[in-house]
Amino acid sequence: MSDSMVNIFGLYKSYYRDSLEIPVLRNISLKIPEGEFLALMGPSGSGKTTLLNLLAGIDQPTSGTLSVAGEEISQLNENELAKWRSRHIGFIFQFYNLMPVLTAFENVELPLLLTKLTKKERKEHVETALSIVGLAERMKHYPRQLSGGQEQRVAIARAIVTDPSLILADEPTGDLDKHSAEEIMILLTRLNQEFKKTIVMVTHDPRAAEKAKIVRHLDKGELD
């Protein structure tokens, strides 16, 4: 149990619209050991993003238990969750979602502002993260001065700069050309193999899923 990064049991998630229940996830049970690289596939609307959001503690399950990085996160209050998230979760989105007014360096530094690190320590961490993704030379560039693939690499640097235990990636190659997508997958594979990060990646792209160690399918809210 303790060597599981994620331990989900009997998880249900419904949304309510005008007192109408919309079940999204049904009776999900899932164990993800530390060091796993899991690809989550499934048709649009099947609940993949919802599951990632639950793992990140930015959404609450309707019922069931949900332990992530050793914490029973459904028991945490909002501020505890925010703190927990900044320590344990690295999030990568389909549309990169960098702050347009901040440089690559400042974007990567953002999550570190929640830590007690000094300015100098933050600088070292940011530089390390940016050189891992191969963008040390682009530190002073703003997102609009970068290509999509480069933006996504900055986003990955932002996700790993705090050295989180779990990286959650929601269609990280969904908006990229073939070549950039490959670069991102190489990077994620490296994070998993070299840096021993546990990764859960949602993807539609079979070539991307291939790189994962295990592929799970979600359909109509149920895991295969």
Binding site: I58, N79, A82, R85, R87, F91, F93, N97, P111
Partner: peptide, 14 residues
């Protein structure tokens, strides 16, 4: 709105 969501997802509080 989206940026706010990102900041919160990174761990910034309300």
């Amino acid at each position: 709105t989206k940026e706010i969501g990102i900041l919160r997802a990174l761990g910034f509080k309300r």
